[in-house]
Design a binder for these strands. Structure first.
Lengths: 340, 340
DNA sequence: AGTTTATTGACGAACGTACGTCAAAAAATT
DNA sequence: AATTTTTTGACGTACGTTCGTCAATAAACT
C-alpha cells in the first residue's frame, strides 16, 4: 500500500540494510553481483528514495552564494528581495548574497576568487562577459564548487548551467507583438537599447530584427538609440528623435529606462501615440500599462528564476539527475488586462 | 546556526517537549498563560516547523480524488495526463481520478455522493453549475471531506476554494490583444463560443466585450456564433459567416473547436485574413501559431492547476494557513515566438 | 484538609534514511 | 591449510517531529 522502503528492498534482495545503503549511496565494498541483486529489487518494487527522510537523517545543508550586481538596478534589487522572500522556504539550504559593482568584470572575478571553498557548496552569478571572469570561474569549479549563471549567461565557460530567459526569443516576441500592433498603420519603429555591449540587449535586438524583417518586411526599424539604461538619457534622446521623426508608430525598449520612455511619449497627442513594448514588470511599468502609456511588457519571473537556480545547484551538488524542462524560464507577456 | 527545533522552544519557554507539542498541534489541556509563553518562545527564536520531519513522523497520507469530465475534451485529457505525471512527485499523497460524463450534473452529483468518506480526505472537481451538484457538495462537506473546484467554479456552494483562471480576465486579455491587432484596420470582430450555458464561456465573453466597448469603441463585435465546441459545427458556421461578412478583421474563439476556426479561415486570401485569438495551447494550436493561422493563444497552465489544487487540499485538510498568492493561476499569452 | 480536576512532564516508540563501528563470513591469496 | 583481503551483516545513534501512556504536580473545588 504505502511506498516501499529500504527495508523492503533488503528483504527482497536477500541482503542486509547496510548493503542496500551501500549500494544506494555508492559506497564501495559491494560485489557487483550483489549490486545487481539490489538494483533488481529496487526496480521490481519501484522503490524511490524518501528524500525528506534522507535529508533529515544526513542533516545536509546546502550553502549557496548568489553574486549579484549592486547599484540601483531595480531588476536586480527585485531578485534580491525574491531571495530574501524565499529564504526560509528552503529547508536544509542557507543562502547568502554578495553584491559586486555592475559591469565590472575584475570585481566579479575577485568575488569569485574570494569564495570560501569550505563554507560554500554552490554559487549563482549574474555574469559579465570577460576572460578573467571565465578564468575565475574555472578556478572556482576546480575547488569543487558548483556554479550556474543567472539572468545573464557566460557561454563557453565552466558554468554548469544557465538560468534565465532566452533573450533572442524575448526579442522575437516583442517584434511579434509590435509588428501586429502596427501592421495596418504606416510608419517606422524605434528601438531603445541600454548598450549593445551587454549580451542580453544584443540578443534581444537580434531576435527583434529577425522577426520584423522576415514577418513584417513593410515595417522599417530605425537604428537603435542607446540610453545606457538611464531614464534621463532615454527620455531626452527619445524626445529628440520623436520630434524629428513624426512617423514613429512603435517603440521597443529592450533595456531599462522605462520612465524615460514614458516621459518622451507623454506629450504626444493621442493619434500620434505609438505602440510601446518594454521589458520587466515593475510597479512603474505596471502603472504605465494601466494608464495606457505602454501596450505590453515582456517579463521574466524572478521568483521562478531564484527557485530554479537553487534547485539546480542542489541537484548539481548532489550529482542527482536534472529535469531539463523544469529549468525553463518562460518569456511572459503582460497586457493591461492579464496583470497578476 | 541551524534552525531551532521544538527542543529549543521548550528550553526557552521553560516547559517540556510535550507541552510545546500540545500547543503546536492545538491539542487541549494547556493553560493559556503557558500557551503564550510557548508562542513567545517561538516568535523569539523564529522557530518554524520542519514539515518533512512532521510528515515523516505522522506518516500522513492525503487521499485525494479528482473528478473530471470524460469524453474527448483534449483539455481535460491533458489535465489527466498532468495528474499522472505529477503523481509520484507528491510524497504522502495518493491521488485517484474518476471520470463523469461532461455537462451531466446528475452524474456529477452522483459521483460526489459515492465518495467514500473513510478512504478520501479531499476532492477536486470540475463543476457543472446546478442545484443538485450544490446539494451533493454540501453533503460531501458535511462528511468532513475537503472540496475545491477546478477550472470551472461553482459559486455560492460549499466548495472551499476555486483553482483556475479568472475567465473574465481571460476575455479582457483577448480583447486587449485583438483590439490592438485590429486597431488601424477597419472592420468587424467575430466571436466564436461553445455555448453560453457554460459559465466559463459566458465570463470570457463578458470580459471581452467590456474591454472592446470601452477601449476600442470604434470596433464592432458581431453577435456570438455558437459552435458547441465541435470543430465541424464551428467550421461550417464560421465559413458561412465569413462569406456573408467580408469585413471580419478579427476572430476570438473562446471555447474549443480550434480546428474548425483554422479550417474556416484557410481559404481566405492573405489580405483578407483576420487576426485570430483562441484558447488553450495544445499540439494543434501550437502548429497553428507556427504556420501563422492563429496570432495568439490564451492559455492556462495545467501543471500548475494540478499542483495548486493538491497543495490547497492538503492545506485545507490540515487546517494549515493558505497563501492566497500561491493559488493564483495566471492568464498566459502565447505568440508564435514565445512558445515553450 | 481532603478530594477532584486540570495541567504538565517524562518517557518511549515510530517514521525512513544515513553513517559509523565491529565482527562474521566469504573469497582470494599465499 | 593458513593467511590475508574483500564483502557482508548486525547493531546503535541520529535527524525533528508525532502521539500515546502514565505519573507528577498544580489549581480548583468540597
Amino acid at each position: 500500500m504505502s511506498r516501499p522502503t529500504i527495508h523492503d528492498v533488503a528483504r527482497v534482495a536477500g541482503v542486509s540494510l547496510s548493503t542496500v545503503d551501500r549500494v544506494l549511496n555508492g559506497r564501495e565494498g559491494v560485489k557487483s553481483v550483489t549490486q545487481n541483486r539490489v538494483a533488481e529489487a529496487i526496480r521490481q518494487l519501484g522503490y524511490e528514495r524518501n528524500i525528506a527522510a534522507a535529508n533529515l537523517s544526513r542533516k545536509r545543508r546546502y550553502r549557496l552564494l548568489f553574486i549579484l550586481p549592486g547599484g540601483g538596478n531595480s531588476f536586480m534589487r527585485g531578485l534580491e528581495q525574491e531571495i530574501a522572500a524565499q529564504m526560509d522556504a528552503w529547508e536544509f539550504t542557507a543562502i547568502s548574497v554578495t553584491n559586486v559593482p555592475a559591469f565590472d568584470d575584475a570585481a566579479l572575478a575577485d568575488a569569485l576568487r574570494r569564495v570560501d571553498p569550505q563554507g560554500t557548496d554552490g554559487v549563482a552569478l549574474v555574469a559579465t562577459d570577460s576572460a578573467i571572469v571565465r578564468a575565475a570561474l574555472a578556478e572556482l569549479r576546480g575547488k569543487g564548487i558548483a556554479a550556474v549563471t543567472l539572468v545573464s549567461d557566460l557561454p563557453s565557460s565552466q558554468r554548469q548551467r544557465f538560468v534565465g530567459i532566452d533573450n533572442v526569443q524575448a526579442g522575437r516576441t516583442a517584434a511579434s507583438l509590435l509588428g501586429r500592433f502596427c501592421r495596418w498603420r504606416p510608419g517606422r519603429i524605434a528601438l531603445v537599447a541600454g548598450s549593445m555591449l551587454v549580451r542580453d540587449h544584443a540578443e534581444r535586438r537580434l531576435g527583434f530584427e529577425q522577426v520584423l524583417r522576415s514577418e513584417f518586411p513593410e515595417q522599417e526599424v530605425l537604428p537603435p538609440l542607446e540610453g545606457f539604461d538611464d531614464q534621463e538619457i532615454v527620455g531626452d534622446r527619445l524626445t529628440d528623435m520623436l520630434s524629428g521623426t513624426p512617423d514613429v508608430v512603435g517603440i521597443y525598449s529592450l533595456g531599462a529606462g522605462n520612465r524615460g520612455v514614458a516621459r518622451a511619449i507623454a506629450p504626444l497627442p493621442a493619434e500620434r501615440r505609438p505602440s510601446v513594448v518594454v521589458h520587466e514588470l515593475t510597479a512603474y511599468s505596471r502603472e504605465a500599462l494601466l494608464d495606457g502609456s505602454f501596450d505590453a511588457v515582456i517579463h521574466q519571473d524572478r521568483a521562478q528564476e531564484i527557485r530554479v537556480a537553487v534547485e539546480l545547484l542542489q541537484a548539481l551538488i548532489d550529482g542527482s539527475p536534472i529535469d531539463p524542462d523544469a529549468q525553463r524560464i518562460g518569456v511572459e507577456v503582460y497586457l493591461r488586462d492579464n496583470l497578476p
